[in-house]
Amino acid sequence: MTELENDVLAIIAEKGRVERDRLALDARLADLEIASLDVIEIVFALEERFGIEIPFNANDARKEFDTVGDVLRAVESVVAKPAA
């Protein structure tokens, strides 16, 4: 697991109030009972943590962020060089 992945999952676990070991990449946010408002807070925390802008509109939330892996990929795609 990369440091980036580690950090992203830690933030999802904290803001989504979900136990870390439930955060499989294919786990659906809805199944983890991470509500839309939690997703917005997660995106905010990720932007603050990495100093990035994640293009995200809550009106497309279901399309864009269905799973934990979707969130991770969104961060990876805007972080130019993820730390190893």
Partner: peptide, 20 residues
């Protein structure tokens, strides 16, 4: 902006392409 529910291009209520 932080709520992420504002449309970038217009208000289209009940439209299939609405985005905020």
């Amino acid at each position: 902006e932080a709520m992420r529910i504002v449309s970038p291009d217009g208000c289209r209520p009940f439209c299939a392409t609405r985005n905020g």
